[in-house]
């Protein structure tokens, strides 16, 4: 991003923006392998891009559309993994029902606790700080 011309090109081209996101991911993977960090490469890449944004070495406009391509259909990327259940016939019987019971019960608990805790704390802070901007 040396000249304003190349900046404008990046702001327009979704393909170039996707390439920037991919480059961030690649940098993360390389960093994790080189340093032997116990975190996924994608998280290191996330941290690298976030750091570049915060230090203003990279502008959000240069990546907004590229990031949108990945985030708008996130569920699709997750789909191949869901079919793994077919490979575990041992969960078709009683064991499967037990697993489902544990996961269902625990997920309801986690979501209730998290949602209500955050909402209560948020309202308490907003209440104490006076009428500030509502998030939505």
């Amino acid at each position: 991003m040396t000249t304003s011309k190349s900046v404008r090109l990046i702001h327009r081209s979704a393909i170039l923006q996707i390439a920037i996101v991919m480059a961030g991911w690649l940098a993360g993977e390389v960093l994790v392998r080189l340093l032997g960090l116990p975190i996924p490469g994608s998280v290191a890449g996330f941290a690298i891009i976030l750091a570049l944004l915060v230090t203003r070495r990279l502008s959000a406009t240069a990546m907004r559309r590229g990031a949108g391509v990945f985030l708008s259909d996130l569920l699709l990327l997750f789909m191949p993994a869901t079919l793994a259940v077919l490979d575990h016939q041992e969960f078709l019987g009683l064991a499967g029902l037990k697993v489902l019971f544990v996961i269902l019960g625990s997920t309801v608990a986690v979501m209730l606790v998290t949602g209500l805790t955050v909402d209560l704390c948020y309202r308490w802070r907003i209440g104490n700080a006076g009428p500030t901007r509502q998030s939505r």
Binding site: F46, L53, M63, L71
Partner: peptide, 9 residues
């Protein structure tokens, strides 16, 4: 992987 990176924006 890149989708997690994309969340930075």
């Amino acid at each position: 992987g890149p989708a997690i990176v994309a969340f930075a924006i």
